[in-house]
């Protein structure tokens, strides 16, 4: 398990990368992200684990990556990042989202 300080450091790193991604993403063309730009978008997997708003349980190691070397979307040749934990989310019931959150 990571310490609180390590989590903070990782979260800070993820935010930095996130800002870079946002800038790059705004700069690229509408339809196709050039391979170089896409590679630059690679987020260190694991950093992001600490950057989102939910709590982790279990080890935070990832075996996958979100962008392949060719800049194409991942998941085509790689396996799923099965070491990623499923994060907890809050417990106050339904909140305002734009997505289907059924637990049927």
């Amino acid at each position: 398990m990571l310490t609180g300080e390590e989590r903070q450091a990782a979260g800070s790193s993820a935010r930095t990368v996130g800002r870079r991604m946002a800038v790059l993403g705004t700069a690229v063309g509408a339809a196709v992200v050039p391979a170089g730009a896409a590679q630059a978008n690679i987020v260190g997997v694991g950093n992001a684990v600490f950057g989102n708003s939910c709590t982790n349980h279990g080890a935070a190691q990832a075996t996958g990556t979100t962008v392949s070397d060719s800049g194409t979307a991942s998941g085509n040749h790689l396996g799923l990042p099965l070491d990623l934990p499923r994060n907890h989310c809050g417990s106050s019931g339904i909140v305002c989202t734009a997505v289907f959150m059924s637990s049927v």
Partner: peptide, 20 residues
């Protein structure tokens, strides 16, 4: 579904680049 939202967002950037 694993609530890895930042990773999901990063992935969607590349997905939409290829499948607008």
């Amino acid at each position: 579904t694993h609530r890895q939202f930042r990773l999901t967002a990063d992935h969607l950037v590349t997905h939409f680049a290829r499948w607008p």
